[in-house]
Design a protein around this nucleic acid. Structure first.
Lengths: 348, 348
DNA sequence: AGCGTGACAGCAAGCGCTTTCTATACAGGA
DNA sequence: TCCTGTATAGAAAGCGCTTGCTGTCACGCT
């Protein structure tokens, strides 16, 4: 039914071994023979059987990219950058690899299952992006799985994710804490003293780090934080919208709202406007990530730019063994404060 | 080194065949035996070898999702919906499938290579999303490849993509033409007579269809189009920004700008504002797709909502054989005009 | 002339699983 | 009691490819 290596070999009048070697190009084959083989491949429209070759060679050309939410540009941008370096089709020549992005939806179980699936496929490399879940049993399960993957020869790289406690994987981490701190310092510098904070889901590292940075800035300025000023929600505009309404309900005198990320900030802006508040005259707003739309909204968003594409590209190269891992296996990538229209001095 | 089926069998004191059957659950195995096997699997921390099982069974649990640009929420949302229905981890129970999204970057070659890679992996199904490239040789190469995939048992579904000429694949198409027409009719209804159009890349079906809809509306209203009113660019904000500047340069009297999609519209808004024009008082703006941010920008964007998530989910179910394909293999999905703040009556 | 030496090509042994067919065991029914 | 049917387990033959090892041949050297 389907064409196999043997068929090609027969047609080219060579042994299957020779065909395999022509296709893999890692063993000397005379030019004329190669030619003959390639012609046969072409004529028969032969396509290598991936599973069979993966089995025989004990390696595969699959590279997994785990993301929390593929519909979120934060992950999309990173995934895109990683993938372009993985050198899937169109990347630099050489082994064509199938870069596959897996959407965990932020669920620890799915993350684990995808990891198992990739392990099952004997993936060549795995890149995990975005914040991790801090739930203890899950965290150690993931760590164990990553260790096992590493032992099996799969290269594991974390991108925008805190290093594993046992440092078993190479990690490119975003300095969420530092960015969060800088952002809030900026607002404090403008004169704000009552700042609401819309945090992400409780159990995520990203959420915690950004919040810690925020609080560190408050503490450094001697501002005592009111527990009512913090609300948790998901990382999307809807959550930002609702959280802002809640914040306003709890304390209408807030002069600034710091959001967990740009999408949340967008929702916050909508809520503020609907509440009749002007930005930034009445309330300042700040985001995080600097996604593409952030500069276009009105007023443009004050935020912390994270070099998502650069980090992704680097992670991709490291995963492919095309770049040296950072010294010590861990690199911290800093964000850059982008001061724009959504932040201003508080109303007196 | 690595644990194999045979190791598990030895430990559980059964034959490899039995272990395989326990794992695949499609053959009667006594409860006590099953139990013993599962315990052994657990104790040895055994993970099935995907390639080996795919080879032996001649099927795999990979499902491919092709997207033009993973960093674009348009595709992210669809991919996410498809994936959740594919029932990757966390989906409904049963066969766990590895849904992999492949980023073609809009390049025909990469699209083709990914298709080959998926064919090589003997993918269970493939979903192609978004507009196709109209370049003839490429189009027929893709069609041929899809046909071959179909013959090999891979289910092929097109989502948000025009049906293949030979109707070889199931297609869920967006009515881009109708949406484009409706949108422009709306603007004409408001009194606009000089409308700029920022189209996507020339060779894409989506671009052409939306533009045709626009022109049909103009023609129906007896408005003769000035060729200077159309500019082509990519589907991103940057392109929208630049195209708008160009449009303004060519004809400063335009009263409306219709963009290829929401991101482009966002860039257009930025350019207009920087040119000192108010929206919609001086110039109306319209987008397409109704991405999540479109309702939050100021002014909120008049656009055509495409049910991306619903379409994706449906495509996913069809790909998994969990929903009947539409009658005739083709379904057209209509968009819905969303009239919002960015469109108004033209300045007299 | 004899022979070491490259440069290629082929043989054949798996890689780890699935699955068909066969074997065994026990329960009823005749 | 013997035979048949049913439930369950095992033996073994691949699935299509890779690769270590074994030729074979044509040179060029001594």
């Amino acid at each position: 039914m389907t064409v196999t290596l043997a068929d090609v070999a027969a047609r080219a009048q060579v042994s299957p071994a020779t065909v395999s070697r022509v296709l893999n190009g890692n063993y000397p084959v005379a030019a004329t023979t190669r030619e003959r083989v390639l012609r046969a491949v072409d004529e028969l429209d032969y396509v290598l059987n991936g599973p069979a070759s993966a089995l025989a060679a004990a390696t595969s050309d699959l590279v997994g990219i785990l993301v929390n939410d593929i519909a979120d540009p934060f992950f999309g941008i990173m995934a895109s950058a990683i993938q372009s370096e993985i050198g899937g089709p169109g990347g630099r020549a050489g082994g064509e690899r199938l870069a596959v992005v897996c959407n965990t939806g932020g669920s620890p179980e799915r993350e684990l299952t995808y990891l198992t699936l990739l392990q099952r496929q004997r993936a060549a490399a795995v890149v995990l992006t975005g914040g991790a879940v801090e739930d203890e049993p899950h965290a150690s399960a993931v760590a164990a799985k990553l260790r096992r993957l590493g032992e099996a020869g799969t290269r594991v790289v974390l991108c925008g994710r805190p290093p594993a406690p046992d440092a078993s994987a190479i990690a490119l981490t975003f300095d969420n804490r530092g960015g969060g701190r800088e952002l809030t310092e900026h607002l404090i510098g403008l004169g704000h003293r009552r700042l609401g904070y819309i945090a992400g889901p409780e159990e995520r590292t990203t959420t915690r780090h950004r919040l810690e940075g925020h609080r560190a800035a408050l503490a450094a300025a001697g501002i005592e934080e009111d527990p009512r000023w913090t609300v948790h929600g998901r990382y999307d505009r809807r959550a930002g919208y609702e959280a802002t309404l809640e914040l306003l309900r709890r304390d209408p005198t807030l002069t600034a709202v710091v959001a967990a990320n740009d999408s949340v900030a967008l929702g916050a802006c909508a809520a503020l406007r609907e509440s009749g508040l002007r930005i930034p005259e009445d309330v300042s707003v700040a985001g995080f990530d600097d996604l593409p739309f952030s500069i276009d909204v009105v007023p443009s968003l004050t935020t912390v730019r994270l070099p998502l594409a650069e980090a992704g590209a680097r992670a991709g190269r490291i995963a492919m063994g095309r770049e040296e891992p950072p010294h010590g296996g861990i690199a911290t990538i800093r964000g850059e404060l982008m001061v724009r229209g959504s932040s201003g001095t508080p109303r007196s």
